[in-house]
Design a protein around this nucleic acid. Structure first.
Lengths: 212, 212
DNA sequence: TTCCCCCCGTTGCAAATGCAACATCACCCT
DNA sequence: AGGGTGATGTTGCATTTGCAACGGGGGGAA
């Protein structure tokens, strides 16, 4: 229970209290089983306690396409629940044996002064988690919005440099993962990095980059 | 005040009450003036009452890059405020003369049973607005994630067809806007649409499309 | 050490795409 | 009708990029 974003700064006894108040339930899903099917009703904020999930879109012809993985501590499908989407547009599947906590959204919004100690924090944490996901997606969108590979790379590296306030940075990706994030071919990425080095724009070694 | 997403389903007297309770303030910005500068403090949920804003990133060399426009009824910078980002990473500028409502975020989370009628709705609306923006961005990300123009087009059209449950659809874009959304060249988009028609995949006229 | 494997860089080539310039078309105004 | 204007389609061309194949280097295991 320690690393659950939604319960950040909440004391154990407060968590106990809110689980009861919200009529929370838990369930364990075995590896490969479907947690939420496309079209099924969405009423709860769902949290991964242990394990890992994949979220997939499902085409008309039935083929699935993984768009995201969710690990322990994070909630999922929160966007749909909060946005008022009643039936799931995605399939959620357990990648390993996975324990999940279900918190009815309706009850989260029943306000009582007497329980506001934890409720204020819970709501604040939920806002933070949804908003942070928004920032992550936006950041990647801005990268993908760039036309050329070089622009994508520079935009990405600069945004990180901005964040940490230095021009020597370390990225959390291998080349292959970096190519996936930038949505370009791995070899094309290597080629362009090489060109940018020749042009005196960057220096790099493994996942450490320096901007000039 | 009618079309403000944040005040959806709230009665006028409830809005009056909450404006007072939250210590809301308003301010008018003239065309071209800076509403929020990069680096300035973010404490309030901001809502456009009338007018239009642009949100821009600012490079180290000072050049600005518009990433979004915000029109009346929508809130902005909500992501940063809710995510706990204290200082603005973007510049917000008035495109026309624009009136803005500022709602201190801290006070939104002060829970009182006595005022919960409007507070519950307000919080629910805020969740909905942030989450809906997530869904919009995610949808576009999935499109941009496709490799070829043809895949981008099909993914986009299919996602809309999925939504409305028909294979004849109408999109909210002109060609130029569509090209912008798909992040491709306008003429390249026209060419590919033409090719797809030849290949018997789609039929189209203006912004109406039919999928086969 | 030697072998093996994985990650990364390099390169030739073909296909996709951006770019620019021009052609058409639809629509509005007079 | 005529002309003007803005949106869309078309096309040639140069560039970018994906793809596939190969090579080198580092690290782990026997």
């Amino acid at each position: 229970m320690e690393n659950i974003k939604l319960f950040n700064k909440l004391k154990d006894y407060e968590i106990d209290e809110l689980l009861g108040f919200l009529h929370a339930t838990t369930k364990v899903f075995s590896k490969g089983s479907v947690v939420i099917n496309k079209g099924s009703k969405l009423n709860d904020i769902c949290v991964v306690l242990v394990g890992e999930l994949s979220i997939s879109t499902k085409n008309i012809n039935g083929s699935e396409n993984v768009i995201k993985k969710v690990s322990a501590g994070s909630s999922f499908c929160t966007n749909y629940v909060c946005a008022g989407v009643k039936s799931s547009p995605v399939v959620v599947r357990a990648e390993k044996q996975t324990g999940i906590l279900f918190l009815p959204y309706d009850r989260m919004l029943i306000l009582h002064e007497s329980v506001s100690q934890w409720q204020k924090l819970l709501l604040k944490n939920l806002f933070a988690e949804v908003a942070q996901e928004n920032l992550e997606i936006s950041a990647r969108m801005n990268v993908l919005n760039q036309k050329t590979i070089r622009e994508k790379i520079l935009f990405y590296l600069n945004s990180i440099a901005d964040e940490v306030g230095k021009n020597t940075i370390e990225i959390p990706f291998s080349r292959e993962e970096m190519a996936g994030y930038l949505c370009v071919d791995r070899s094309a990425l290597s080629r362009e990095l090489s060109n940018m080095h020749k042009d005196g724009l960057i220096d790099y070694k493994k996942n450490e980059f320096q901007l000039f």
